[in-house]
Design a protein around this nucleic acid. Sequence first.
DNA 1: TGTTAATCGAGACGGTACGTCTTGTCTTTCG
DNA 2: CGAAAGACAAGACGTACCGTCTCGATTAACA
Lengths: 189, 189, 189, 189
Amino acid sequence: MTGRPRDPAVDDAIRQAALDLITEQGYRGVSMEGIAARSGVSKQAVYRRYPGKGEVILDVLAAYARTRLPTPDTGDLREDLLALLEETFAAQRGVPGALNQALAAEALQAPAFAERVSSELINARRDAVRQILTRARDRGQVAHPDDEVLIDLVFGPMWYALLFDAGKLTDAYAAALTDAVIAAATRAP
Amino acid sequence: MTGRPRDPAVDDAIRQAALDLITEQGYRGVSMEGIAARSGVSKQAVYRRYPGKGEVILDVLAAYARTRLPTPDTGDLREDLLALLEETFAAQRGVPGALNQALAAEALQAPAFAERVSSELINARRDAVRQILTRARDRGQVAHPDDEVLIDLVFGPMWYALLFDAGKLTDAYAAALTDAVIAAATRAP
Amino acid sequence: MTGRPRDPAVDDAIRQAALDLITEQGYRGVSMEGIAARSGVSKQAVYRRYPGKGEVILDVLAAYARTRLPTPDTGDLREDLLALLEETFAAQRGVPGALNQALAAEALQAPAFAERVSSELINARRDAVRQILTRARDRGQVAHPDDEVLIDLVFGPMWYALLFDAGKLTDAYAAALTDAVIAAATRAP
Amino acid sequence: MTGRPRDPAVDDAIRQAALDLITEQGYRGVSMEGIAARSGVSKQAVYRRYPGKGEVILDVLAAYARTRLPTPDTGDLREDLLALLEETFAAQRGVPGALNQALAAEALQAPAFAERVSSELINARRDAVRQILTRARDRGQVAHPDDEVLIDLVFGPMWYALLFDAGKLTDAYAAALTDAVIAAATRAP
DNA sequence: TGTTAATCGAGACGGTACGTCTTGTCTTTCG
DNA sequence: CGAAAGACAAGACGTACCGTCTCGATTAACA
């Protein structure tokens, strides 16, 4: 019932290989076969841990997310939101952006996987924005009653850009989007 | 130099097969191989017309788009926007939604293709919203100076939903989103 | 140095599982993996006892052989030979036939194993025929000087049939073969 | 309906690769994967031609068989049989021997394949012996009525040796076996 | 009225990845 | 130490697509 425990070095090798591949070649260059080859691990060892490459990427991204900074809390809605967006967009310009794109591609091919991504990754990010909005509302800075839609205004454009124009995610765009979202938030419909 | 002209029936058969496949099985079930087999056409005949499945889907969607209604123009920003979003979201609940998801999946795998999708499909939709905003601005209903960001507020959440939660695109959501966008539009940052 | 003694129940379970598998699915269905799974024993427990599936089968067959009848001795060459062949062929129509086929398949893949099969199984059977021939020669019924070739005439066709046409091994064939071998034996070349 | 014709160079490459592999490494070293790799051919190209490695080997051996000498016809039973057996045994000491062993191994794993081997290869060899026997009977040199059993006496020991002791197939053994078979043939049971 | 050239279907071709299966070894915990 | 459990590297299995190619057979427009 116990058996030989999984070798953590294998876990690391798999994650590292997946990360390397996506960094060097993008989503197209990632395959279960390639991950195994690159990591010097057997295919079985990979399939034992993950049902598909989507879950590998999800796990790699989760590792990234674990080392993320806390939600900004400056006492000002605009400053909080801008800080969050700048940081988030900056990440999208790097490896996490490629990982997110890969995640999106996988999600499009399997609704069940989309569900997992939502619950394990997306929601955490939404929570951060929700905190910011809640605190601002307590300070009377938010009039719009529907947090969920406001959060969609924040992340929708980001994914939209990841799909069709990743270069768009600059600091300037973070500022412009922040302004627009705040305009929506501070006014009741 | 002239040679045998292309058979229009083959064009139709290809588009129809692609449409059938995506309707029945989603993006995963679509392959150049499958399209050829389903349509009773040779693979070469498909590749002669399209460089990849992305372009097939793009073409099928373009055929849909050609039969689309004109941009609403009621004289009221909210009504215009709501009508547009309801109509658009309704489409996403049907076959065009699946086609859009497929398009997104392809775009994620080839930046060059993402570019094509942008210029040939996305921009047309953005133009519609831009018209609505421009007319409203002329009537003094829009204070926000940056149309492009406002348009992102409209379509970003839609693609976001197509990625992770297609069921979200209801009439109610169209209304909520309309309200939020208008809140942003009517207020200068 | 002594440690825990091996559990004889494990030995039995392994042999039984191997026997079951070969009975139900033939040689193709036998694997070390399968034997372990079927017997509810760890793979290690199997490998500790046998270097490969060939030896498992050899052991199972040896268990069968232990319960075999003695060499016939009726005082007549033809009767002795016929009795032996009928009994032997009858066995080949059953589970021992499948085991022999498996043994042959293993032998073909490892000459060293072929050697073991020869010395541990084949030779015992050859001895039986050799006894019959020796007794007959003492009675003046055998003129052919080379027992080994005569024995080959007996068993060669049997293995030949096991390879390509196991259904051939009927009582009628035992009789026909007996006649031919006796014809060869009673005449000096 | 016609399609691109199969490239004969591919056929040759496959057969050559299979031959090389079996020559260098024996039956164990042959795999569909290896044949494809070695021949520089895609796996599909192999599977398109053969359902399994057994059929590849069968085909290679058939190519050998096509270039075989005609059945000896010296007017004397002993000379004919000896010539045939010496030639046949000599072949078993070389590559065809390895091919035959491989064939046997495959036949043991699939009765359907055993059937094919019988009809496409074995029977041709039996025919040769049958011709020799028939001619000898016409000359009054054969008294035994059952050709099929006599043929089994010829080939049985050969396959028996291929299974468990390939080194046995010397010229001396060919002579000894010839003598024994003739002893059986010239005497009615 | 023939060429000529691009089409059509069919299907072979080299590749790559898929996900599963065995093999034989190794590593853990428990008895 | 034996036993069950199960991880591990290695590599074959047979299938599916990819995008390209080579056929023989059409189907026009041009000569």
